[in-house]
Amino acid sequence: MSKYQIRKIINYFNLVAALFVTALGLFMLAWILSVLFSKGFQYINWAVFTQMTPPPGASGGLLNAIFGTLVITFFAVLIGTPVGIMAGTYLSEFGGNSRFSSTVRFVNDVLLSAPSIVVGVFVYTLIVEPQGHFSGWAGAIALAILVIPVVVRTTEDMLKLVPVQLREAAAALGAPRYTVTLSIVYKAALSGMITGVLLATARIMGETAPLLFTALNNQFWSSNMNQPIANMPVVIYQYALSPYEDWQNLAWAAALLITLSVLAMNILARYTLKGNGAR
């Protein structure tokens, strides 16, 4: 065999391997989704949305858990978004490349990938332990800490895409800097910033680890954020590993619901960004 042929064979072999691993990656996604549908879909019925989580051996639904997840997620996003947007605004509009903003940028990127369970422990020692009981607020704050880095990052990136000339044009008309930022720059970057918030929401909706130590779980209906509150991820965790078949079935139904919501939100976020033409 000539050297050229050997090179060609190596080339084909590696490219086929690349094709194969890509197919493997897609297959994994398909496998996970098909498991979720085949196990979970049959248990999704009216009761899931209207009844409370049952005691072992009884039938029931997920109403309190769905409600709890929505409330905790809502407050986490409500707390985390303004912090993230303002911090991102500082980095893009005021900080430049100063030492302070470089540090913030660096720390933010580390927090973006930091283990969520450590955040859970942090909020436990910060809020749950001094208060003496688990609470929905602690859960919301733990998730808010996970929201912040995502929003900071996307806000900064999106604001930086806004042309400097736009800011200068507004400033030349006599607008003070905050007006420039609030009514010109934000407007131009709005869809990108919304994308960031949506991505952050998608990220925290399925987060389990931080909620284990903060919001915990509640078998009954509760809308009191000062008390432990039911939520989907912890219900899935407890029910999936339980020996009761009813609970396991509910866990699969919950798993399908939460995954579909998270994936839908992700796709929605991408669509928002694409509509803007920013990418």
């Binding site: 890509t22 996604l29 399925g206 999936a240 992700n266």
Partner: peptide, 22 residues
Amino acid sequence: VGIAIELLAAVPSIIYGMWGLF
């Protein structure tokens, strides 16, 4: 294909756990 691969990152950790275990 890019989006599908990135969706693997969006699937919640606990779902990987259930699928992985069962």
